[in-house]
Each structure stands twice: as C-alpha cells, then as structure tokens.
Amino acid sequence: MLLIRCPYCEEERPELEFRNAGEAHIARSANMAGESDDDFEKFFFIRSNPKGIIYERWRHMHGCARFFNAVRDTVTDKFVMTYKAGEPKPSKLPGVAK
C-alpha cells in the first residue's frame, strides 16, 4: 500500500484514505461552449499514458477531502511529490534526473 503525502494535511497517509482522480493539468476552457471539436476531444478524451513520470489528481477522500496534484513514477509506483490544486506544474522534480 502506497504512502501519499497530502499537501493540505502536510502528512503522509496510507493509500486507503485517497482516491485517484485522473490526469492533472487538463484545464477546463473558460469558453467551454465555444471549444472546437478538436479541442474538446483533447480536453475530454485524450489522456497520456506514460511509462515513467505522470502528473495526476488525487483526493484525500477520507481525510481533509481536498483534491490535490501528485507526481508519480508509473514504473516504481513511487510518489515524487505532491502539491496543492491550482499550483503550476513543477518545472523541476526532486530526485529525478533529466
């Protein structure tokens, strides 16, 4: 069972308290009604499926109930870092050589 650090509770808590909520940093358009078919397709249907670093949303369902973002390595399953919803995608990841 994974340990996940909730950036709001500022604590590592067991995976059981959390729910995955899909890929992160997929912004909903401010002009949703005017989106082109292609843009809507990208927004709603297309998701990355990387072998390695993935940016995803989690919810601390059985804790503070907040949604937040996490960086996880899909190969090792390790969480590289977590950060609050609304914060920008981190440009540098701790401990990841690139």
């Binding site: 909903r28 949303r57 907040r66 949604f67 609304g86």
Partner: peptide, 10 residues
C-alpha cells in the same frame, strides 16, 4: 464528489 471536484479545482 462531482460537485466538490468542480468547486475545488475548476
């Protein structure tokens, strides 16, 4: 959950 998701993130 759906409501909280939109309220918190969008």
């Amino acid at each position: 959950n759906h409501m909280e998701d939109y309220l918190q993130t969008e």
